[in-house]
Design a protein around this nucleic acid. Structure first.
Length: 250
DNA sequence: GGGATTTGACCAAC
DNA sequence: GTTGGTCAAATCCC
């Protein structure tokens, strides 16, 4: 894909979106790296902060033209008594990215709905932060596969609303790797209750939060070693996907 | 049994 | 009236 100059806001958004996606992938690499945690953890924090900044920028750009980007989830404003089912989110932080790894963004999500969208071949899945109940985190996201059949791996439009306010639960349990297989692996139906072909949830277990800005998942020491790169020294949650890592790195 | 997902119904925005 | 977002009961899986 040829890089283009920033000629218009949509292009800026596109670049930011791709930057965000690549940061998620970098986060995956950092998180899965067996390198010294004392250096990896601060790097993860920095990446997460960078993602936060890009998300804020995307939010700023995209809120200038509300509903222009396939308006996603409704904000959860029920606490203050306002409408909780606004189709077009006004005054709500939201941003949209296009990615091939829609599930891996370092947070835990719980699926709460799925709908077929008019004039769209693929259903849209709705996710809330896992901590929406226990910590009142208002972050939500929707995932919908793009109708771009030539894309390999398939691309997904991921729309986020609200930043996370939750903190990862402190635990000493060994975290697990994100199962990104479902994203690109032929719409596997082997996992539990996969009705939607491609949007099966991916829920890493929480680990100790590294910083307060945003909780960060730690994916070191996966429970499924078969998914990890062998010989490269890098454990990747995308190992079974069709992601062209060399191209991504270019 | 508990937690996560599915799915139809309900409701608000358009 | 149509469409999209959320809820909640039913269901499934570990």
């Amino acid at each position: 894909m040829a890089e283009q100059p920033f000629s218009q806001s949509s292009t800026v958004t596109d670049h930011l979106s791709r930057g965000y996606e690549r940061l998620t992938q970098l986060l995956a690499l950092l998180s899965s790296s067996p390198a010294n945690p004392s250096t990896t953890a601060p790097a993860i924090v920095l990446v997460d902060k960078a993602m936060f900044c890009i998300a804020a920028a995307l939010s700023e750009l995209q809120t200038t033209s509300p509903c222009s980007i396939d308006s996603p989830t409704a904000a959860e404003d029920s606490r203050n008594g306002t409408d909780s089912k606004k189709r077009c989110k006004k005054n709500v932080q939201s941003w949209t990215i296009v990615t091939s790894v829609p599930h891996f963004d370092g947070h835990q999500w719980r699926k709460y709905g799925q709908k077929r969208i008019h004039s769209s071949e693929f259903p849209r899945s709705y996710y809330k932060c896992t901590h929406s109940k226990d910590q009142g985190c208002k972050a939500t996201k929707t995932i919908q596969q793009k109708e771009d059949k030539i894309s390999n791996p398939p691309k997904y439009v991921v729309s986020y609303s609200m930043h996370h306010t939750c903190k990862a639960i402190e635990t000493h349990e060994i975290p697990i790797v994100v199962d990104s297989l479902a994203i690109t692996n032929e719409h596997s139906t082997s996992s539990s209750q996969v009705a939607s072909p491609d949007l099966s949830p991916v829920l890493p277990k929480p680990v100790a939060d590294i910083e307060q800005v945003c909780p960060i998942m730690d994916y070191r020491e996966p429970h499924n070693e078969a998914n990890w790169f062998e010989g490269s020294g890098i454990m990747s949650p995308f190992a079974d996907s069709d992601i062209d890592w060399e191209r991504l790195m270019s």
